[in-house]
């Protein structure tokens, strides 16, 4: 059958080498006698080749020296640090103090203290007692307004929290390694300081598992140093990729349903 109607989808898969051998052979046979089919396939092949050729110059560009040096340094540091086996993934909050990256967490810890002080027990219900080992206190979210915002505001959106002068900004939603739903968010206070934070579901409540305060005057968004700390934290808890908008909406809706 040389006059089979091949859809554009099939032809594109053919051009991209994504088609099974049998159908591919069928198309090749049909192309021997069908010029229009040849040019339809040709469009996919030519656009692929043209795109590749056009982007080649970016590959040939010399790498910026700073970038190459920075990454080289990073790799060298990491590979030499590996001799200490504990330097792999940091668990939060408890980890030996002799870890070479512990200093980073001390910064986070200091900022965390500032956060809790600054919010004046805002998040600390009656359950803010530090876990054993004298590590960081993980607080349950006791503010109904914040809990509500966590359960409703889509990532990319922001909202003024009821009965407070704080602005809540949802950044992303993801699942941790235990599949608990987590949200990364930022809170701006009236003094222009910003808290970068992560809260995860624990049973029927949100628990703040991470928070860093960015100093005031940063113009309403978190400076790079605090997001670096956050990145390290997300890596440590094995955070999954951010949920797509649809998935997030569904996860949050499920949450609200359970709560009723």
């Amino acid at each position: 059958m040389t006059r089979a109607d091949f859809s554009d989808d099939i032809l594109m898969r053919f051009a991209d080498g994504e088609l099974d051998a049998e159908t591919s052979a069928e198309i090749e046979r049909a192309m021997e006698t069908d010029d229009e089919l040849v040019s339809r396939v040709g469009l996919f092949i030519e656009t692929r080749q043209a795109a590749k050729a056009a982007m080649q110059s970016l590959l040939d560009e010399p790498l910026p020296a700073e970038l190459e040096a920075a990454v080289g340094r990073m790799v060298a540091e990491k590979t030499s640090a590996q001799s200490a086996p504990s330097a792999s993934v940091l668990a939060f909050p408890r980890r030996a103090a002799n870890d070479r990256r512990a200093s980073r967490w001390l910064v986070a810890a200091a900022s965390l203290a500032a956060v809790f002080a600054g919010l004046g027990g805002y998040w600390l219900g009656g359950r803010g007692e530090p876990p054993s080992g004298g590590a960081l206190p993980l607080a349950a979210v006791s503010s109904p307004a914040l809990a509500e915002a966590l359960a409703t505001v889509a990532s990319g959106e922001e909202r003024q929290l009821l009965a407070s002068n704080q602005r809540f900004r949802a950044i992303a939603t993801f699942r941790d390694s235990a599949q608990a739903l987590c949200r990364e968010f930022e809170l701006d206070s009236a003094d222009r300081s910003t808290v970068v934070s992560v809260a995860c579901r624990a049973g029927s409540e949100w628990r703040v598992t991470f928070a860093v305060a960015a100093p005031g005057g940063s113009g309403g968004y978190a400076p790079a140093s605090s997001t670096e700390t956050l990145d390290a934290y997300l890596t440590a808890i094995d955070a999954g990729p951010p949920l797509e908008a649809g998935e997030e909406a569904k996860a949050l809706a499920d949450l609200r349903e359970v709560r009723q």
Partner: peptide, 9 residues
Amino acid sequence: GRSQVMKGV
């Protein structure tokens, strides 16, 4: 043309 396309494939 056909020969080019087949080459590309």
